[in-house]
């Protein structure tokens, strides 16, 4: 996918949109009526989502993630592309609807996504070649980034992650029970804590990989 970082709206989460005007796109959307998105349409969309620039960026990322999750769940092979196509269409229509639309804006995206997905299903299926990526190189970089990000964790968080991901199968279950008991929390709470740390770790690694690539 040819997604590029176009701007950093939140200061943390870079908002990327692959089809802004002026960019040459390698992947073409399978949806019909493909058009490039103008910068002003994209800006208008963000303003419509939230008057605050940072919150608008977060809302955009959240909606995009949800669209991708739904499309993947429906069995779509290219959910990211269809999600971007959905956002493009909404962005082009914001000028017409922003004064009249009432209700949850995210639901509007869902309606448009249904149309985009419907069109996608009507198209003949095209075999999509797998992305050619240097897996070994990426793994090495990810390893380095993991080290860096683990070092950034607090001692407690690091210890929790180390023990949460330790051992296999039954031994892992035993270890997690033991860890939960030591922390005085239920297994579910332990899982939640570990996943929150894991989420931070994932974000840190992705940021690290981006800087490594750039």
């Amino acid at each position: 996918m040819a997604a590029r970082v176009t701007r950093d709206l939140t200061g943390e989460t870079p908002v990327s949109h692959p089809k802004l005007v002026g960019h040459q796109i390698a992947d073409m959307s399978p949806a019909k009526n493909f058009q490039f998105l103008k910068q002003e349409d994209f800006d208008r969309l963000l303003t419509w989502l939230d008057s605050d620039h940072n919150d608008a960026g977060l809302a955009y990322e959240r909606i995009r993630w949800r669209l991708i999750a739904i499309l993947a769940s429906r069995g779509c092979a290219v959910p990211e592309e269809l999600a971007d196509e959905t956002i493009d269409r909404v962005a082009r229509r914001v000028a017409d609807i922003r004064d009249t639309y009432v209700g949850d804006k995210a639901i509007y995206f869902l309606g448009v996504m249904n149309n985009v997905h419907h069109e996608y299903l009507k198209r003949p299926t095209m075999a999509r070649p797998p992305d050619a990526v240097d897996d070994v190189e990426i793994k090495e970089k990810t390893h380095l980034c993991l080290d860096k990000c683990l070092d950034k964790l607090t001692a407690n968080s690091r210890r929790m992650i180390e023990r949460y991901y330790a051992a296999d199968k039954q031994a892992k279950i035993d270890l997690r029970k033991q860890l939960a008991a030591e922390s005085g929390v239920s297994l579910n709470t332990l899982r939640l804590r570990a996943l929150r740390i894991r989420e931070k770790l994932q974000a840190c690694i992705e940021q690290c990989l981006q800087t490594e690539v750039l």
Binding site: I161, Y165, A166, D168, A171
Partner: peptide, 8 residues
């Protein structure tokens, strides 16, 4: 981390 935990 899997090996470390098994050892522990």
């Amino acid at each position: 981390f899997s090996f470390a935990g098994a050892t522990e």
